[in-house]
């Protein structure tokens, strides 16, 4: 493994203002359905901590609201994330965090697709393949060290 930080000086961006949903102000219909939407998914993952910096993925612009695609009807989510540097070996960890968080937060009917943004990573294809391979994800989560690392990154997103 590489010693030292992979990206020692990441650029920090401002957090986006958390807007109040307008629908919450009128709790008129008890039975109206509020579908799972882009912002809701983004709210789940925005506070995940970067594995090597004390900043959230949102602050590092690894994920943005626009990078979340969701289709509630067909139970499908695709999250495209952008590692801060091209050769970032943390990309798989970040992807794993995103997957675990969404698995824990979404109903089981959902299929989750996690991808690295095209052109943002040196071994893009390999990373994508690794992240969407059920067996390999399950195997990764058998590794106590990895799980500990993932849990640490997810901790702030549950507050």
């Amino acid at each position: 493994m590489v010693s030292g930080l992979i990206n020692a000086n990441p650029v920090i961006y401002e957090k986006k203002q958390r807007q109040q949903r307008s629908t919450q102000s009128l709790p008129t219909d008890e039975y109206a359905v509020e579908p799972i939407d882009q912002l809701e998914i983004f709210d789940h993952i925005r506070d995940i901590k970067d594995p090597e910096h004390p900043y959230s993925l949102e602050e590092l612009k690894v994920i943005t609201e626009e990078a979340v695609e969701v289709d509630d009807q067909n139970s499908y989510v695709r999250v495209t994330f952008t590692p801060t540097v091209e050769h970032c070996s943390m990309a798989t960890i970040i992807g794993l965090c995103l997957r675990v968080k969404l698995l824990r937060s979404l109903p089981s009917r959902y299929k989750v697709d996690i991808r690295v943004a095209p052109g943002s990573h040196a071994t893009e294809a390999a990373v994508n393949k690794q992240l969407n391979d059920k067996e390999r994800v399950a195997a990764a989560l058998e590794n106590p060290n990895l799980v500990e690392m993932v849990d640490e990154c997810l901790a702030p997103s549950f507050d």
Binding site: R21, V33, L106, P107
Partner: peptide
Amino acid sequence: KCLDDTKR
């Protein structure tokens, strides 16, 4: 099953 509730 509450993860799939109708209300956010």
